[in-house]
Amino acid sequence: MHLLIEKTVKSATSYFQDFFIHEYSRKTYLHDVHPSIKLLGTLAFIILSISTFQVKKILLILASVYVLALNTGLDVGVLAKRSSLFAIFSFLIVLPVSVFERDVVYLITFPLRVFASISSLQLFILTTRFSEILYGLKKLRIPGMMIDIIWLTYRYTISMFRDLLSILVAREARRLKKTSHIETLKGGSKSLGLFLLRSFEKAEEIELAMNARGRKISYRGKYRAGFFYILYISGVATWWMML
């Protein structure tokens, strides 16, 4: 049981470090662009990177994303680091098939496409707060109910995690002998059962509180249309077509 807690605390620590990555304090041009426009721009970058296997086109998108990041004063190292894990993973995934088909180009282009599209998404994530993303989605006609649920999920994850952690710690406090992996699985899933029961109770209380305060969640923001951002992406897209 203590192993479960230790491993979980460790992995959750690194997970939660990213949780607030959006809570930026600085403002750059990109931070100010309307989240819906930025989301569409990001989709454009991703579509452009994954609709081709031509190295030069993929490199064009990759360069455009990083130039954009650099130009707006973002830490390019962080962007690359956050995007590289899946790219490396993808390289390893396609390694066997590339060897089998003796296709070195594919071994490069496939992970490069993944890297370019993840970089585009990470650029969006690094310059948009979570509530802004939801505002953007709402403006793009994603049903409000879904948006509200996503917001509450985000809002309560940390407090639910703290609850879960203390339930696990309480069970660990009552452990008086060494336990096997199976016993940890058993005890742990019982703890999860207790945790979910409490979550239902908590949800009822939160619902009452929300009824008392009003149910409407408002996502607001004042953004610029992002004329130069749109222009930039149009330019890159035209170039992509011409290559």
């Binding site: 959750a12 620590t13 997970y15 939660f16 940390i158 995690f161 703290r162 952690l165």
Partner: peptide
């Protein structure tokens, strides 16, 4: 001895 604790959420 010189102990401190930080929760996973920081």
């Amino acid at each position: 001895i010189e102990i401190s604790y930080v929760y996973p959420d920081g």
